[in-house]
Write a protein that binds this DNA or RNA. Structure first.
Length: 934
RNA sequence: GCUUGGGUGGCGGAAUAGGUAGACGCACAGGACUUAAAAUCCUGUAUCCUUCGGGGUGUGCGGGUUCGAUUCCCGCCCUAAGCACCA
């Protein structure tokens, strides 16, 4: 054993050993319970960043913990390797996206391996390889068969100059990223997956995972799905010349060309309706458009045009509208209402038409204020109901959106909102002008992308047969090689004749392929099922393998994926269940969302007034090129660039472009993988943001070195020489029931009823150390079970400090002392494994005298012995009137009476109680005594 | 604007279930070792007062419940994230 701790040396050694022995390679077995530990797979951008390091360090710690707890742990990794950056690199630099991606994967795989992450590398998958995307296509065809994939018109961002479809990022700010032209919306036909068919299941099945998912994630998903219960109500149209051309209400089953159907969650407010407001695209507008005045038409055209503008979602859009002159009839009151077009009504949601009730809806209120429409209160707070019913009009300052009691509502007066909602809906149904309805915010998932670097959608267009799905046996539909990608034009594949021109799978006549590729979120929907069976060329995976390994026991990733990815993959699982591939509803039992890693940034803001496009843009400076002055508290006073320019600073998400990224390779080079990983886990709770601070990592190194030095000293100075008397000694490993894990030998093993480690020991020091050992085991175990990673590191540091406090020289230590140290040290090393596996492996090897490795030796996570963890004496604080005045030492078994007596007998306490009347004494067993005096 | 988290030393953060606030680490200061430095080891470090025994205050602010509140309740302030016309 080296006297000094050389991180690089032991990390190389153990990484090689693990690889050669296949230490983390697993297969299905009934011998152990399974545990599927999964982390979100990286996009192969070229370099690992600290966010990855954090994510994978947490996952690896859990994987190791579960292994040491006797589980058969599946811990795989792969690559989310389709996507825009590869294509952008191809456009900008003319590289082949495939080569670019493969190179990046090779580099990043090396980075992961240098971190010593315990993956089963045989199971690696990459989305861009045909053996994977073949099954994206396989799934698409299945969904097409099931009626879950369909085509419809939909909007994309469109650059009229480049004639190219842009992603949201490329259209950021409403201008094309390449040429700067104003981006427009354009309607093209695209493929959709029917996520809405599972809206209710996506909501209701949350009950199954509530215990393991953070509430904030579930809440965001609930909001995203946005189920609202309400009613459709039909308003007759009095002077509509043409009526509706067709039923424009996709969710409706009642069609009446002479009416407008609205969706409302507040049918109880219907007597307060002052208008019907419809979207500009609504059928009733189209049908009567010719009859409208020029001004009306102009407003409607403007509203439509505004909707095609790409805007940043920041600014609140001012309400705008126009009275069409059409008249609707409130089916409850018979009152005639004007029909308006309003820019705040969305054609995509509900029926594209609302009843405007300004008194009880904020948007309608704002609209009514602007156009001076009447505002009538029909819901009142219960205690004001009588008063309100006497008044004709109420001057409301703002909309009253709460539930209450109905007023000015004829027959329904006095009813509560709850009761009225139900009864009025029933009434509408009975009279044929309405029905109960549920609507969702969730839209079907548009998966068409007009890009090259994705999985081709396996559809063929035939002049004879129409839309024809490719045959399963013809999969994969391969991406062509050697395509020049320019970024201009509709879809890169459309310009590759060898790809486009094909024959119809149905009639063998010439036909054309679909040239759109799939959204990369498709790849990440089911990748973790591919790990189970990544060589399978017939099926995405064998259902038996899924039955063994899935659902995923623990998933870890950033909460930026709380909605999209995690909803899509839940949706996908439900379709796989309906295909008979899996038998459960939910793919992930427990989800841990980790916070971002952030760092200080320095930048200059462009004040340029003349060029409005670049105004306000930030130019970032790398922190190491910035001269920073800080005050005594460490706050930045000033920051200057090399040429003396005053810079602003902030704390932001790490990224290359901001110059505040930290290179994991550099960290590993300087401090070692173990120290870097240990620090990342120790620095902050996983859910929190982690502000990167270089200084802290030295603390992690220091801790590992302390453990190393202690072990070295005790081994070198004979602390673990055979015991001298009273104990049976063996030369090989042996299970020690007392400790729940194997206590292997360094020349000795203790056995027998009178072994000192199985008692508390005789000297106070030994008792204290033994106690600390078992208390630490208890704490660390509890922390792992509740997914805390910073506190167990603190506990291990305490145990290490306790060993340093144990002031006995190894050469002079007696059997009892040496045994206690050994138990503490082996426990410490085993508990350190999840955080610093290389160091732990090496220390363990030194302690037991063989190099086979922790897992091969069958070592397990230590188990705490409650009896040994218990303290002989505990300190009981004594309060007088709630203020801490003294402490007394008592046995943990001391009765309340004993504690009370001891407290009263205490001299310090007496100072505060003398001459006062004792009103009450509160005794909390094992906790404290509080004496209340007057 | 709405929703949900979060406010604890110079900093990151601890504190089962209402029961000793500040574990552990960083940073800083002092000491030991050394020719010296680094490393290491030891000591101290919420704050104010102190006759050095100790005492007062303190978990964003104001109130409440309780023998006792960082923890529970009410009101407010600040902050981060998400959503943003979803009827």
């Amino acid at each position: 054993m080296d006297e000094k701790y050389f991180a690089k040396k032991i990390e190389d050694k153990w990484q090689t050993k693990w690889r050669e022995s296949g230490a983390f390679e697993v297969e299905e077995t009934d011998a152990k319970p399974k545990f599927y530990q999964l982390e979100m797979l990286p996009y192969p951008s070229g370099n690992l960043h600290m966010g990855h390091v954090r994510n994978y360090s947490v996952g690896d710690a859990l994987a190791w913990y579960k292994r040491l707890k006797g589980f058969n742990v599946l811990h795989p990794i792969g690559w989310d390797s389709f996507g825009q950056p590869a294509e952008d690199a191809a456009i900008k630099r003319g590289v082949n996206p495939r080569d670019w991606t493969e190179e990046n994967i090779n580099h990043m795989r090396g980075q992961l391996q240098r971190l010593g992450l315990s993956y089963d590398w045989r199971r690696e998958m990459a989305a861009h390889r045909p053996d994977y995307y073949k099954f994206d296509q396989w799934f698409f065809l299945k969904m097409y068969e099931m009626g879950l994939a369909y085509k419809k018109m939909s909007q994309v961002n469109w650059c009229p100059n480049e004639k190219a479809v842009l992603s949201n990022e490329q259209a950021s700010g409403g201008i094309c990223w390449r040429c700067g032209w104003a981006v427009e919306k354009k309607e093209i036909e695209q493929w959709f997956l029917k996520t809405t068919a599972y809206a209710d299941q996506l909501l209701d099945d949350m009950a199954e995972i509530e215990a393991g998912w953070a509430e904030k994630v579930l809440k965001r998903q609930r909001d995203w799905i946005g189920r609202s219960e309400g009613a459709f109500v039909e308003f007759g149209i009095r002077n509509s010349e043409f009526g509706l051309k067709e039923d424009t209400n996709p969710q409706s089953e009642i069609t009446n060309p002479k009416s407008v159907r609205v969706f409302t969650t507040r049918i109880d407010t219907i007597y307060g309706a002052n208008a019907i407001v419809v979207a500009a695209e609504h059928g009733i507008v189209e049908a009567n458009f010719a009859n409208f005045s020029d001004e009306t038409r102009a407003v409607i055209e403007k509203i439509k045009a505004d909707k095609l503008k790409v805007t940043d979602h920041e600014a609140e859009i001012e309400k705008e509208g126009v009275d069409t002159g059409l008249k609707a009839v409130n089916p409850f009151s018979g009152e005639e209402l004007p029909v308006w077009v309003g820019n705040y009504v969305m054609i995509e949601y509900g029926t594209g038409a609302v009843m405007s009730v300004p008194a009880h809806d904020e948007r309608d209120f704002e609209f009514a204020r602007k156009y001076d429409l009447p505002i009538r209160q029909v819901i009142s707070e219960p205690h004001l109901a009588h008063e309100h019913s006497q008044m004709q009009a109420m001057a409301l300052e703002q909309a009253f959106t709460e539930y209450g009691v109905l007023v000015h509502s004829d027959y329904w007066n006095g009813k509560t909102s709850d009761a009225a909602k139900k009864e009025m809906t029933d009434y509408a149904v009975k009279h044929g002008f309405g029905e109960a309805a549920t609507t969702y915010r969730l839209r079907d998932w548009g998966i068409s992308r007009q890009r090259f670097w994705g999985s081709p959608i396996p559809i063929v267009y035939c002049d004879v047969c129409g839309v024809v799905p490719e045959k399963q046996e013809n999969l994969p539909v391969l991406l062509p090689e050697n395509v020049t990608i320019t970024g201009a034009g509709e879809s890169p594949l459309a310009k590759v004749p060898e790809f486009v021109n094909t024959v119809c799978p149905n009639c063998n006549e010439p036909a054309r392929r679909e040239t759109d590729t799939m959204d990369t979120f498709v790849d990440s929907c089911w990748y973790y099922f591919r790990y189970l069976d990544n060589q399978n060329s017939e099926m995405p995976f064998a259902p038996e393998k899924a039955a063994y390994w899935t659902p995923v026991d623990q998933y870890i990733g950033g909460d930026d994926h709380a909605v999209m990815h995690l909803i899509y993959t839940r949706f996908w699982t439900k379709t796989m269940r309906d295909m008979g591939l899996v038998t459960f509803n939910e793919p992930v039992k427990r989800l841990l969302t980790q916070g971002m890693v952030i760092g200080e940034t320095f930048f200059d803001v462009i004040p340029n007034e003349e060029d409005p496009e670049s105004k306000g843009k930030r130019i970032y400076f790398p922190p190491d090129k910035v001269t920073v002055e800080r005050d005594a508290k460490g706050k930045i006073v000033s920051a200057k660039s090399a040429d003396g320019k005053e810079l602003q600073s902030a704390v932001e998400r790490m990224s290359k472009s901001k110059g505040n990224g930290v290179d994991p390779d550099e960290m590993v080079e300087i401090y070692g993988a173990d120290a870097a990983r240990l620090f990342v886990l120790f620095a902050a709770p996983v859910e929190n943001e982690l502000v990167w601070n270089e200084a802290g990592i030295e603390g992690a190194t220091r801790f590992l070195q302390r453990v190393w030095r202690f072990t070295y000293k005790w081994i070198q100075e004979g602390g673990f020489r055979p015991l001298e008397s009273g104990f049976e000694v063996e030369g090989s490993r042996l299970d020690s029931q007392e400790f729940g894990y194997k206590m292997p030998s360094v020349g000795f093993i203790i056995k027998g009823d009178n072994a000192p480690g199985s008692t508390k020991g005789n000297s106070p020091e030994v008792r204290k150390l033994t106690q600390k050992t078992h208390q630490t085991i208890k704490r660390v175990t509890e922390n792992f079970e509740s997914l805390q990673f910073n506190t167990p590191v603190a506990a291990l540091m305490e145990l290490s400090n306790a060993l340093y406090d144990f002031k006995v020289e190894p050469s002079e230590a007696n059997d009892e002392e040496r045994y206690a140290v050994r138990v503490a040290l082996v426990s410490l090393v085993l508990m350190l494994t999840p955080f610093a596996p290389h160091t732990a492996e090496e220390l363990y090897a030194q302690l037991i005298g063989n190099d086979q490795g922790i897992l091969a030796n069958g070592a397990q996570f230590p188990i705490a012995d409650e009896n040994l963890a218990k303290a002989d004496e505990i300190e009981i604080p004594v309060q007088v009137n709630g203020k801490l005045r003294s402490r007394v030492l008592a046995s943990p078994e001391a009765s309340n009476d004993d504690l009370e007596k001891m407290a009263l007998a205490d001299a310090k306490v007496a100072e505060y109680t003398d001459g006062k009347q004792i009103v009450k004494i509160v005794v909390v067993p094992k906790r404290l005594v509080n004496i209340v005096v007057k």
